[in-house]
């Protein structure tokens, strides 16, 4: 009466359990990887933004930097403060994008961009200054969230550089 060729229920259950146990780390790893990749992208973007802010500051004449009232902070999508240039002309880029959501519910590029950058914020500060030697140390920090809605997941990229003024003897 029994089909001796089939697996027993127990065998099947054990098999499924083993498979489930084996697949869980893989699924977890996959999920983690996706999350990490997303996070890495943000980290890289934060690095680029920080670099862009730093380059914008450093290229300015010493006198202008000296006159800046630091710290300056804000969201990267805010209008520029103190004549700071938004990194990569981000606002211009954003404004040039289409903003109408398509009928099938796909977000517009502008909405996508807003979603990508809305949690990015920057802070520019002086970490040191020597007026006699005409040296100002600039610290640029760009913060981002690994999980968009969890402020505890905020991470940052920091860069430091010195700006030197002209000294005449």
């Amino acid at each position: 009466m029994f089909n001796k060729k089939a697996f027993s229920m127990i065998e099947l259950m054990v098999g499924v359990c083993i498979f489930a146990l084996a697949i869980l780390p893989i699924v977890w790893l996959g999920s983690r990887q996706t999350s990490n990749a997303f996070s890495a992208g943000k980290h890289m973007m934060a690095g680029q933004l920080a670099s862009s802010y730093m380059d914008d500051i450093i290229r300015r004449p010493y006198k202008d930097i000296e006159a800046l009232s630091l710290p300056i902070s804000g969201n990267v999508l805010d209008s520029p403060k103190h004549n700071l240039k938004n990194p990569f002309d981000i606002l211009t880029l954003r404004d040039s994008l289409a903003d109408n959501t398509s009928e099938d519910g796909i977000h517009s590029p502008k909405e996508n961009m807003d979603a990508s950058f809305r949690r990015f914020r920057y802070e520019i500060n002086k970490f040191t200054e020597n007026k006699d030697k005409k040296i100002i140390g600039i610290e640029v920090t760009v913060y981002y969230r690994v999980k968009e809605n969890d402020e505890n997941t905020e991470q940052s990229v920091k860069l430091y550089a010195l700006k030197h003024g002209e000294r005449t003897k």
Partner: peptide
């Protein structure tokens, strides 16, 4: 930049 500042001075 610092070396250049020194050289310029």
């Amino acid at each position: 930049s610092e070396v250049m500042q020194h050289i310029r001075s």
